[in-house]
């Protein structure tokens, strides 16, 4: 019983980032604070994916990222699969950075995050502009990308703290 409880506790704690990712995708709650500050919006999903794929890919997993993207598309009314491609791009950049980087710090993570944001938004824009009739505001996307980049250190600190209370095994 005690072992079962312990395993359940570990499982819940370890699944917390994944739960947040799914919840942000499935719920109408977004990180657009236009009612508070007109230009303030950031993409928390990308931050979550990048951080955890960089630190420990077993926490999220590409399959969950893919499904989270599909769900986000359905909820947001975007062409199906576009968010998945965008999120998987971030995951790919994170995986690549992890492969080529030895010492990782906040600053290396932060500045390499620019690449993730860039490719993610690039893929997103290219697909939207070429394969759908949706109209996008480049200014809004720019602000979103900027604030996503800006908020990364704050989320990094929070996740870094949370990572210490997690019970992580060896990374794949």
């Amino acid at each position: 019983m005690a072992i079962l409880y312990k395993n359940l506790k570990y499982s819940i704690i370890n699944s917390f980032p994944l739960i947040i990712l799914y919840y942000l995708s499935i719920s109408e709650i977004d990180t657009h604070f236009s009612n508070m500050f007109e230009i303030l919006s950031f993409n928390l999903q990308i931050i979550i994916i990048y951080y955890w794929m960089l630190k420990n890919s077993t926490v999220l997993g590409n399959g969950h990222i893919f499904f989270a993207g599909i769900i986000n598309d359905v909820v947001m009314g975007l062409p199906l699969g576009i968010s998945s491609i965008s999120y998987l791009t971030v995951s790919f950049v994170a995986s690549y950075i992890r492969q080529v980087t030895v010492n990782m710090s906040l600053f290396t993570d932060w500045f390499t995050f620019i690449l993730a944001i860039f490719f993610s938004n690039l893929v997103y824009l290219v697909l939207i502009l070429n394969f759908s009739d949706l109209q996008l505001s480049y200014v809004d996307i720019s602000y979103n990308a900027f604030f996503t980049f800006l908020f990364y250190p704050f989320i990094w600190v929070i996740f870094n703290f949370y990572k210490k209370i997690m019970f992580l095994g060896a990374d794949d």
């Binding site: 077993t58 997993g61 590409n62 893919f66 062409p79 199906l80 491609i85 790919f92 794949d172």
Partner: peptide
């Protein structure tokens, strides 16, 4: 890996297929 059942390229291709089918 042990927990990564699908490779990134597989999921990317799957996502692109779904996107194209939907589009």
């Amino acid at each position: 890996g042990a927990r990564q059942k699908f490779s990134l390229v597989f999921l990317l291709i799957l996502a692109i297929i779904i996107f194209l089918l939907d589009t």
